[in-house]
């Protein structure tokens, strides 16, 4: 494995968890699958439909999302929205995430400072 492949693999693992938070963040109002893909892509969180659609179903099954079919449009679309539990979980996740960012920032910057100090 070369350097790039290692990075790709680690990034994949890193993204996997963050996608869920990204998805939950956009679902305070109902969205259907593809609109979410576009939205997340625009905001710099690239996600493949092949990943997102199964993820949405899984989150629904876990009770974090609720869904309803909209058959009024040209094609039937399944709209997802946060459930009560989903909202609570999302809020907690956000706190956890901020905690992680803070701690990692700290770790990364402390190390940089040390390196600079050594120089």
């Amino acid at each position: 494995m070369n350097e790039q492949e290692h990075i790709d693999k680690l990034m994949l693992e890193l993204r996997r968890g963050t996608i869920t938070i990204g998805v939950l963040s956009q679902l305070s109002s109902p969205q259907y699958g593809y609109s979410l893909v576009t939205m997340l892509n625009e905001k710099g969180v690239p996600v493949e439909p092949g990943t997102l659609y199964p993820l949405l179903r899984r989150l629904e099954k876990q009770g974090l999302l609720e869904s309803s079919w909209d058959t009024n449009e040209a094609r039937p679309r399944k709209y997802y929205v946060l459930s009560e539990m989903g909202k609570a979980v999302y809020e907690q996740l956000c706190k956890e995430w901020e905690g992680i960012v803070r701690s990692l920032d700290d770790l990364i910057h402390t190390r940089k400072d040390e390196e600079n100090g050594d120089d």
Partner: peptide
């Protein structure tokens, strides 16, 4: 799950084509 996923996938593919 088949029917449900089939409709969903069809919608997705059509959306992607439309885009």
């Amino acid at each position: 799950q088949r029917d449900d996923i089939a409709i969903e996938l069809r919608g997705l593919i059509e959306d992607m084509i439309e885009e």
